[in-house]
Simulated scan of single mutants.
Amino acid sequence: MSATLTTALWDLGRGAGVAALVAFTISLVLGIVTRSGRDALGLGRFGLNEVHRTAALTGVGLVAVHLGTLLFDPYAQLRLVDLVFPFLGSYRPLWLGLGTLAVDLLGVITVVSLLRDKVGPRVFKAVHWATYALWPVALMHAIGTGTDAATLWLDGVALGCVAAVAAAVTWRLSPSFDTRGWTRTPRQVAR
């Protein structure tokens, strides 16, 4: 494999990983805003939900690019087993393992989200809560592995993502979160 192709695979893999972190940050923040029932960005409740889902699916696609390019990159030396089973990699096994753990969580969340109508609201909601575990695990992977770890630009992206998620989660946990917005009404049962 030529050095140019190897460099291109490495750059694409790194860029897709960072872009996925940003997409998942947007998805998590918009998920919280959507849950609040407030109108934001002039999109309304359903528009926000669509942007939330689109950001999440974009993140899934970017993770696929991230994994695919690094799997074929001779420098990264990923094996198929490293994509499924955490902490077995030879390169920075803790940090790579966190990435694998994030991919495993992402797989479960994605499948259940796509099958939302089949699994029902209780299962969907229970599994969807795992995004609160997925996001920090993916962030730790991004910060701890790769050649961009501790660079100013990656630190800036990570800090921006942390600030956005911290603000959204803090708001989600505050008493004012439920004070306005839409309220759910129970379905009327046909008799």
Results as ranks from 00 to 15, higher is better:
I109V: 14
R116P: 07
W10H: 13
V112S: 05
V84E: 07
N49M: 13
A64K: 06
R14T: 08
L106C: 10
A102I: 03
L43N: 02
L30M: 14
P175W: 04
V127P: 06
F24V: 13
R191K: 11
L78C: 03
L115I: 13
F72V: 09
G13H: 05
L5D: 07
V127D: 08
T25I: 05
L115S: 14
P186Y: 12
L98P: 01
V119I: 10
P74L: 10
L43Y: 02
S36D: 01
T100P: 04
A168L: 02
V108P: 03
T151N: 12
P136D: 04
T69K: 01
A56Q: 01
R116W: 01
V123N: 04
L21I: 05
I26R: 00
L30F: 09
D155W: 04
L173D: 03
D117I: 12
L98S: 03
A142L: 13
R35P: 04
S174G: 11
V84F: 15
A40P: 00
G146I: 00
A126G: 13
H66Y: 13
L43A: 12
L57F: 15
G37E: 06
L30C: 07
M140V: 15
P136S: 05
D11A: 15
R53H: 10
P175Y: 04
H141C: 01
L139F: 11
A164D: 02
A8D: 08
A55I: 11
L41M: 14
F24S: 03
V103E: 00
A167T: 12
T145E: 08
G89N: 13
A138K: 00
G156D: 08
V103M: 09
A126K: 12
T6Q: 14
L106S: 02
I26F: 12
T147F: 12
V22Q: 02
H52K: 12
A20G: 06
S113V: 09
S2T: 15
I32D: 00
V108M: 07
T131L: 13
M140T: 14
F46Q: 15
R35F: 11
L28F: 09
V162T: 10
T147Q: 14
A3R: 08
V119K: 01
G97F: 01
T34V: 13
W10L: 14
L105Y: 08
W171Q: 07
W153Y: 07
D155Y: 04
R116G: 06
A76I: 06
A158G: 05
W153K: 03
T145Q: 09
S113F: 03
R172E: 03
